[in-house]
Design a protein around this nucleic acid. Structure first.
Lengths: 216, 216
DNA sequence: GCTCTTGTTGAACAACTGTTCAACACCGTG
DNA sequence: CACGGTGTTGAACAGTTGTTCAACAAGAGC
């Protein structure tokens, strides 16, 4: 019988490196996002994630308990990243509320957000939302934060101009609806309109917020 | 050995009823939509569809060739139904272009469209769109028709008023974006705003189309 | 250098998936 | 009333899936 190379005690290079739980979780999270973006949800299996993270299949459930928990964590991560990205651009701009709203709009049509492979990740999360309460909770929390930022900017903008034809709440719902709708349609079919046209349309809405008469 | 009841030739009630290909296809299509709505895409398997249609597993591939073809057919069916529903309401209203646009908006926020379980079906189709060219083609075709209806109504509306601050194309993209965005957000979290508020916001956009100065 | 904790492995498992196809049986035709 | 074509069946197939867990081994503490 030949010797089993796998159990050869003279081996010098370690077969794996031990990491702390936090480190491993981060690695698995990033691998999950890459898989969802690259392969789509359908094909994002535990085995695909494990391979992407250069890790064995068993480790995923060891660190996250279940695939659902891992995906929920990935959702929270991606939502946080995008909101922080937009907030950072708004903060960098500074200036009047009007200027910062424009920065918010421009950030919403930047390549970081207008990313079709990222869109596939969102579709995945939304699909899971109906069944997984954990994911639904993450959505509620993240989306509330997103709209709150908009609402405060709009309230400030209306104070600057002294005109307010729509309540900040309604105006924010309208703007986020427009931004999300254009984002959705662009991701589904990018030939329909350009990001610049999207910015123009959103700016038009912004003007509505302080100019148009209330709808009858 | 006991007799096998399944091959008992004295059986009186037929085990199945033969149908034409068109009839079977229709039955399978409806069963597929019910499954997607009830179970979500993940759980919508050939076996689930077959059971829902009271039919054996083999019949699905016999009539549609593959699961993908069946789902694409279901997409086309559901998209057609919704667009026709909206167009019918617009036609029933008649009157000025302005009135018909309002009818379009009201129809878009009616329970037929604002249906969370229907939303799950759309998510399914969008998810598959990235991989399945057949589904992508159906989307392009149906969505183009949707926007064309809006564009023509808006052009007519602008002729009525004699004012046009946005091109019909841009105005239609903006309105469909707003409608879709609000629809998306409502389906994900219905507590955020009421359908009536959605109608108000969309009507506000309509006013923009003939009143607001072009965006700088 | 040894021990011990514990992060890591991967074969095994049960439950699914879409697809195939030979056998079956319904029902119009002769 | 028997024939035959064809719509229908469902077991079988070759994959896949998420999860489990006994065995392993890395690397810190002594």
């Amino acid at each position: 019988m030949s010797e089993d190379i796998r159990t050869d005690p003279s081996r010098k290079t370690p077969r794996y490196a031990r990491k702390t739980a936090d480190q491993r979780r981060e690695v698995l999270l990033q691998a999950t996002l890459r898989c969802i973006v690259r392969l789509g949800v359908e094909k994002t299996s535990i085995r695909a994630i494990a391979e992407e993270a250069d890790v064995s299949v068993g480790l995923v459930n060891h660190h996250f308990g279940s695939k659902e928990a891992l995906v929920a964590a990935a959702y929270r991560h991606i939502a946080d990243t995008l909101l922080h990205e937009i907030e950072a651009r708004v903060a960098d701009t500074g200036g009047s509320a009007r200027d910062r709203l424009s920065a918010f709009i421009r950030a919403s049509f930047s390549p970081v957000v207008l990313d079709r492979s990222l869109f596939r990740a969102w579709l995945a999360f939304w699909t899971l939302q109906a069944q997984a309460p954990e994911i639904s909770a993450v959505h509620k929390e993240r989306y509330g934060a997103y709209r709150k930022v908009l609402e405060e900017l709009i309230a400030e903008f209306q104070q600057e101009t002294g005109v307010a034809t729509l309540s900040p709440r309604m105006a924010a719902i309208g703007l986020s609806g427009l931004l999300d709708g254009l984002w959705l349609e662009w991701c589904l079919e990018p030939e329909t309109f350009s990001p610049e046209e999207g910015i123009t349309l959103s700016e038009t809405w912004l003007r509505t917020v302080v100019e148009a008469r209330p709808a009858g």
